[in-house]
Amino acid sequence: MSHSAEDTDPGLPAGDDGETRRDFLTLATAALGVGGAALAVWPLIDSMNPAADTLALSTIEVDVKGVKPGQRITVKWRGKPVFIDHRTPEQIEKAQADDAAGLPDPQADKDRVKKPEWLVLVGVCTHLGCVPLGQKPSQPRGEFGGWFCPCHGSHYDFSGRIRKGPAPTNLEVPQYQFLNETTLRIG
């Protein structure tokens, strides 16, 4: 028989040894419990990351054999349009010459391509995410001949660089490599 609950606050010292033991036990148990709970939450969070089938589609291979100089094609990659532009010698020349023009987001044309005749861009305006026009010959290409975003009037040049309008940066160049002369792997 000892005291009832009211006169024993479990937080108060109950003799030195007991107190140390409980402190250690409480800390160790709490650490284990909190750690375990955190680990248990991870699967729930990670389940919202891209699934294996989504990741499997995150690289695509594109055959560009049939794309003639001056022609542009659009492919879908990771849910977004990718512009592949087979540039003509004149367009390449113009793009390189403009390296020295006053660019809002300065970048040399040679740093934006792997082969000068092939320009590969993520077709999403860096302003607010619209898809710029210019892939079809019938569409407006803006003042600099590249692409024109109809949403807020951003103009891109032959290298996909922002030249005029509200977009802050150049069109993004995705990761890609040439598997051979005419096959591109994007992603």
Binding site: S2, H3, A5, T8, P10, R21, T26, G33
Partner: peptide, 22 residues
């Protein structure tokens, strides 16, 4: 294995906390 260890700790702590009741 983790749960067994955690439960052992919880049991020890439960014993300890309840020990001052009797």
């Amino acid at each position: 294995i983790f749960l067994v260890v955690l439960t052992a700790f919880l049991y020890a702590l439960k014993r300890k906390i309840w020990s001052d009741l009797h």
